[in-house]
């Protein structure tokens, strides 16, 4: 599983990264968490509001900063 966090340098992106890692830890799962900040790479996902969360190449959230609990739910929903 690869989780990508898209963000153009906003403060909430760091928050999302931290929360994602915590959600994974609480679920006891291993996943690669990658931060994407290059505009070209971000646009490839058609996202314009940040932060955005991409799980296994699917955009699951954009312009939102979810709680750890919501992230756990999102990761579980992705079939793990």
């Amino acid at each position: 599983m690869v989780i990508k966090i898209l963000g153009a340098g906003c403060s909430s992106c760091a928050q999302l990264e931290k929360n994602t890692k915590e959600a994974l830890e609480r679920l006891g799962l291993e996943a690669q968490v990658v931060k994407i900040s290059d505009i070209q790479d971000i646009l490839a996902y058609s996202v314009m509001s940040f932060p955005a969360l991409v799980i296994d190449e699917n955009v699951v959230l954009y312009g939102q900063n979810p709680t750890v609990e919501e992230l756990m739910q999102l990761i579980r929903d992705r079939g793990l």
Partner: peptide
Amino acid sequence: CTCSAIPLFLGFIE
């Protein structure tokens, strides 16, 4: 916000 100007601009043009 100035940080969102570029993604918005390019996203629209694309």
